[in-house]
Design a protein around this nucleic acid. Structure first.
Length: 572
RNA sequence: GGGCCUGUAGCUCAAUGGUUAGAGCAGGGCGCUCAUAACGCCUUGGUUGGGGGUUCGAGUCCCUCCGGGCCUACCA
């Protein structure tokens, strides 16, 4: 039994995530975790909310809540939504946890001890009226290059010129509008990534099987310009992990916190510790997933993330781990995704554009979304969500191919034999042919799942569903019943067993429906079909079942049009 | 500006440099009547964005042009 550690990129705390966020990390990670579990592996699937940084403080200020309360509340909201989508985290932690405080401070201390930290004194813009230093992008003004009056301090969106905040004409705070800005001197810690460039570069080069998207982004950062740059890992904010050197005070760093991108990946580890705490387990129980000297040497660690997260996971976090000089587990495989776009534009949390997780669950069950998103996962390039495509795909795949298959065989059985697996008849040529084809396709499905080829796995699974309809059409029990009822019984028995088989195979994609299918078949036998012939005999003669409700109601044209209108603009 | 990704049927996508570029959906025809007007079979549909080059052979490699997207280090 292999051991698999799986992490999904941490969703940021400042609001409800949209479908693009979901499909870029949490959902495919869940697919993989569920698959590996059902294949008998020991799995630790970890996620958490990412709670620090300026946007969290501003979001809290907007609602009038203290930031700690805001984060606690939003963590609760996101936890419920994760549950609603069937995300099977072993633990959904918080980057603001005490575990993460201690670990982040520990890593900083180790990095300092190993001379991978340097102090840098720099000048930053301070907004007197806001009472805070402003990140470059929170300063607005007129672009000196093109005259655009809403240029940001890091870049002008209009002419794309890169800017320094001090370049702006009439600079003002993007938060309050205040022009009462001054440049102040402040001191920060930098992680000397440049000193680790060689090691990180060699490590990336050794990953021959990683997606091009992952390695090309990493190489770009490693080799662009002067190569990998040192990175500031502290900020002048109130909300965050106080800068400490291990458990010691860090002279000169009083009142400062670690940069959110320094502590967020460490939360993968901390969240596993939170899991142990929540389960009443010992430290050794989480450390065996992370410390190669305490049991993690045989762990396979896979990370899932959108492409925007790749630099921090290929460079920053590995630099932290390598630089610590301690035997923490480095990631073995990074599965990265492009973006899902919405009707030709971008999904946007800040602009409220697109479909958000709460809206999605309000209008349709989770499995509709899981199936569409995973079968259209943006693996080779950005992919687009349109209501038309969504309606067509879901109706065809789920309602017609799978749902209707379950419906037709259970209802036929009920009308001819009752709600019980019928007796009689033996397999003939058609049945052995079906089993051969099923076996071939299930093995292909396993390969795609193992390789995290999400779309191909979905297509293969769909193909397996189709085999059921093909079989029924050829076998035609409604015909054979008239001349050879025993043969019809055998055909129906096989059909009913296919439902159970499909429930098991489909569980990683559509777990709720899978449960409903098993419930209808009144069985909890969910072993993986290593032997298809045996798997198709799980429901024995005389076993009672229930004809289930329609598994997937179709999306009507009226619904599609209504949703198209409803989600057209921006939401408040 | 620089870098990376991408462009294949009406749509969404496949195709270690190697038969005649394949699937699903949509469209057309036939069949079936168990089923959510569902299912099955057959079928139409391509100058692989344009142009050059390398090769016995290019969707695939090289050059160039055009279109789309992303990143470019203080948002996360």
């Amino acid at each position: 039994m292999a051991r698999h550690l799986i992490t999904s990129a941490l969703p940021y705390i400042n609001g409800i995530k949209h479908l693009g966020n979901l499909v870029g990390s949490q959902l495919p990670a869940d697919l993989y975790a569920r698959y590996l579990r059902t294949r008998g592996n020991e799995v630790m699937f970890i996620c958490a909310t990412d709670e620090h940084g300026t946007p969290a403080e501003l979001a809290a200020a907007k609602t009038g809540e203290p930031v700690a309360e805001y984060c606690a509340r939003m963590h609760g909201v996101q936890t419920e939504l994760a549950r609603g989508f069937g995300l099977s985290f072993d633990h959904y932690g918080r980057s603001s946890s005490q575990r993460n405080h201690a670990l982040t401070q520990h890593f900083a201390g180790r990095l300092a001890d190993n001379d991978y930290i340097r102090e840098v004194s720099e000048k930053q813009v301070y907004s007197v009226d806001d009472g805070r230093f402003l990140p470059d992008r929170y300063i607005e003004g007129t672009c000196p290059n093109c005259g655009y009056d809403k240029a940001r301090g890091d870049q002008c969106e209009n002419c794309t010129k890169q800017l320094d905040p001090t370049d702006l004409i009439n600079p003002h705070s993007a938060i309050s509008g205040s022009t009462n800005l001054e440049v102040r001197e402040t001191k920060h810690l930098y992680l000397r990534q440049s000193a680790l460039k060689g090691e990180i570069s060699d490590w990336i080069d050794s990953k021959k099987d990683w997606p091009i998207l992952t390695t090309s982004i990493a190489r770009k950062w490693l080799n662009d310009g002067d190569g990998l740059q040192d990175r500031g890992i502290t900020r002048d904010l109130h909300w965050g992990i106080p800068v400490k050197r291990g458990q010691q005070a860090w002279p000169g760093m009083e009142g400062k916190v670690f940069y959110v991108w320094f502590d967020a990946p460490i939360e993968y580890i901390a969240s596993t510790a939170e899991w142990a705490d929540a389960q009443g387990k010992a430290d050794a129980d989480w450390r065996r997933w992370w410390r190669k000297d305490e049991g993690a040497q045989d762990v396979t660690y896979t990370q899932f993330m959108g492409k925007d997260n790749v630099p921090f996971h290929t460079l920053g976090f590995p630099a932290t781990i390598i630089g610590s000089g301690e035997p923490w587990k480095l990631v073995d495989y990074i599965k990265s995704f492009n973006y899902l776009t919405y009707d030709g534009g971008q999904f946007s949390t800040s602009q409220g554009r697109g479909v958000f997780m709460d809206d999605a669950l309000e209008i349709l069950p989770a499995d509709y979304w899981r199936w569409w998103l995973l079968s259209h996962a943006p693996e080779s390039g950005d992919s687009e969500f349109t209501w038309d495509n969504f309606q067509q795909s879901v109706n065809k795949d789920l309602a017609d191919v799978l749902g209707n298959f379950v419906s037709r065989i259970t209802k036929f059985c009920r009308s001819k034999f009752g709600e019980v697996v019928p007796e009689g008849g033996e397999y003939g040529r058609e049945e052995t042919a079906l089993i051969d084809t099923l076996t071939t396709r299930i093995r292909a499905y396993e390969d795609f799942m193992q390789a995290m080829e999400v779309r191909k796995a979905a297509a293969e699974l769909r193909g397996i569903w189709v085999l059921g309809n093909e079989y029924l059409q050829g076998a035609a029990p409604w015909s054979t019943f008239k001349t050879d009822p025993e043969k019809a019984a055998m055909q129906v028995r096989l059909g009913l067993n296919l439902i159970r088989l499909y429930a098991v195979l489909s569980a990683p994609f559509i777990p709720f429906t899978s449960d409903a299918m098993l419930a209808a078949m009144q069985t909890d036998i969910s072993d993986w079909p290593d032997d298809v012939t045996a798997a198709l005999q799980a429901l024995r003669v005389g076993h009672a079942f229930i004809v289930p409700e329609v598994l997937f109601a179709k999306i009507t044209d009226e619904q599609r049009e209504e949703w198209e209108q409803r989600f057209k603009g921006v939401r408040a």
